[in-house]
Design a protein around this nucleic acid. Structure first.
Length: 543
RNA sequence: GCCCUCGUAGCUCAGUCGGAUAGAGCGACCGCCUCCUAAGCGGUAGGCCACAGGUUCGAUUCCUGUCGAGGGCGCCA
């Protein structure tokens, strides 16, 4: 049983004994930043004082005394502090119990949760038009979406990753026309696509093929390939065209009419989105009979709701304005709009040689995602994309991420994992094996470095839960950097094996190292970043 | 004009349901390899959490407004 559950239960029952009525809905337990405030702290007295009609400090004192009188397991002291905080001091044994829990759970079990209750989640991301290669900006949404999917999965949801292909419409036609024109030795038509890739692909295109079909396959293959190189695999690729063939577009119109959610005006068909939270109504079918981009999108989301309980969309900041209209449309169709969650990723700018690299679709000036991956490597690319909250704009410095390894946190983190393997390898060569943990004296782990590591390991399950709830994989990145820091400190100060290291201590530290390894592997996997077993710096020296 | 995100150390950014003395990396400066990989470790310096109000025992965190940065507001996709 986790210490927190033990402590929360104790507080709850002590409050009941003190006649606190009503009892607090939930007891808030936290790890104080200041070690002088104990190992764990609760604001329960502050939180329930008002409802109970008592002075917070007085109630806290009574609570502390009651708990001190019959202390819960591991607890060595209970004190009241400040306005009424109740602080617990615990024996290190609580952390030794954590170590047993971690290594018992292993990489498959530690920090995995069942809160999802098998509720299915569909994460739709990237969904770039098949009119060219993915660029560096797509990388953020790609890595983010995949990591969010990994988080949902770790938290017990059934997850599908889907890529929506806009394989019809004006943009496709312009792309095809551009290819055809360049292949025929002409100029790119008005409003068409420029860029080196158009010339390259036009040169590859065999005679006599349909440029639209050929170009579509070419672009899709290109996009798929770079995603695979980042370790991103989609479960399904959903074609917009297929909805015309299947009649899904007609169906959604008929559903909307049944719901009285559309009307005719000026020869066009409008969605009453303002009845459902949008700030104005939107056109679904233009007066020329063509439908807008919105109608297939609505049909698509309706289809997704038939396949999953919750939808998560990853959109770029330039699409935030469409959130309200899509949620309105889903509401009009009878779905719970809160089950359509749209994550907006702020923009990425690129820097190289200290200067911003301008991206422009119009001139075809862009840095392809494949180029980024080639330049910095898949692990560094993923880690860097997941370094920041997606609410913050990001400047991706290609030189920094690739060449200046000292400033690059991905190596710092991976190196911690490599060092673990170095220790394990050294132990194996010395004929040292880990004994079964029940027979190992974990109470020898009392060094500040050791305890800091165990606290970090203990935090991972909470961090995963929060990162999933907030769809914020950067919180995993932050955690992994913290435990790497704790590990490098431990490595520096605490030798695991070798001369002068007591055999029992070696055993305990080997288990500690194993616990850290489990945490690192779990977290790195959530980020989709590799955990290398060794890393050697490329240098001129021969050692 | 309206909507979204951001504003925290010189720079880039974390900061949990509102908690006690706001953190990290880089940069600067000073130290640490007979020793499991120095891609490492320790220390020093560096803050009006953009600004002004409000909510309350308590606000970097929640609310309102102002200023600043970026992105959106089509019968374009």
């Amino acid at each position: 049983m986790d210490v927190r559950d033990i402590l929360i239960e104790s507080v709850r029952s002590a409050l009941a004994d003190l006649g606190v009525d009503p009892p607090p809905a939930e007891v808030n337990l936290e790890r104080p930043a200041n070690p002088e405030h104990g190992d764990w702290s609760t604001n329960a007295a502050l939180a329930s004082a008002k409802a109970a009609g008592r002075n917070p400090r007085e109630l806290g004192t009574a609570l502390a005394e009651a708990l001190e009188a019959s202390p819960p397991p591991h607890v060595t002291a209970v004190e009241v502090a400040g306005p009424g905080f109740v602080n617990f001091r615990l024996a290190d044994s609580w952390l030794h119990d954590v170590l047993v829990d971690v290594v018992t759970a292993g990489t498959a079990g530690w920090a995995s949760h069942t809160v999802g209750g098998d509720k299915s989640v569909m994460v739709e991301f990237v969904s770039a038009n098949p009119t060219g290669p993915l660029h560096a900006g797509h990388g953020r949404g790609a890595c983010y979406g995949d990591s969010v999917a990994r988080l949902y999965s770790r938290c017990g949801h059934k997850v599908t990753r889907e890529f929506y292909i806009n394989d019809r419409g004006t943009q496709m036609q312009l792309f095809a026309d551009s290819l055809a024109a360049v292949a025929a030795g002409g100029d790119v038509p008005e409003g068409g696509y420029h860029g080196q890739y158009i010339r390259d692909w036009a040169g590859e295109m065999p005679d006599g093929v349909d440029p639209l079909e050929w170009g579509y396959e070419r672009a899709l293959a290109d996009q798929r390939s770079v995603l695979e190189s980042l370790g991103i695999h989609f479960d399904s690729w959903f074609s917009e065209r297929s909805m015309i063939e299947s009649g899904a577009i007609d169906e959604v119109m008929s559903d909307l009419r049944t719901q009285n959610a559309v009307y005719e005006h000026d020869g066009a068909t409008w969605l009453r989105s303002s009845d459902h939270g949008d700030d104005k109504d939107r056109v679904l079918v233009k007066s020329d009979g063509q439908f807008t981009y919105l109608l297939p999108d609505v049909a698509y989301h309706r289809d997704k709701f038939q396949r999953a309980d919750r939808l998560v969309n990853v959109w770029g900041a330039d699409h935030h304005g469409y959130v309200a209209r899509m949620q309105s449309a889903m509401h009009a169709l009878g779905h719970d709009p809160s089950e359509l969650q749209v994550a907006i990723t702020q923009m990425v700018s690129l820097q190289r040689g200290g200067e911003e690299v301008r991206l422009s679709k119009r001139t075809g000036e862009m840095v392809e995602l494949a180029e980024v991956v080639d330049e910095v490597g898949a692990d560094a690319a993923r880690f860097t994309y997941l370094l920041l909250s997606v609410d913050s704009q990001q400047t991706f410095d290609l030189d920094l991420v690739s060449s200046q390894v000292n400033e690059n946190p991905v190596f710092y983190v991976q190196y911690a994992h490599a060092r673990i393997h170095s220790i394990v390898g050294r132990a194996a060569r010395s004929g040292i094996e880990r004994a079964p943990i029940d027979g190992v004296n974990l109470s020898l782990l009392g060094h500040q470095r050791e305890l800091a590591l165990l606290r970090a390991v203990h935090e991972l399950p909470d961090t995963v839960l929060r990162a999933c709830r907030e769809r914020a994989p950067h919180q995993i990145t932050t955690w992994v950097r913290e435990i790497a820091s704790a590990f490098h400190g431990f490595y520096h100060d605490c030798r695991v094996i070798g001369d002068g290291i007591d055999e029992d201590l070696s055993q305990a530290r080997l288990w500690l190292v194993e616990g850290v390894r489990v945490g690192l592997v779990v977290a790195l996997d959530l980020l989709g970043v590799g955990a290398p077993e060794e890393m050697w710096r490329e240098e001129d020296g021969d050692t």
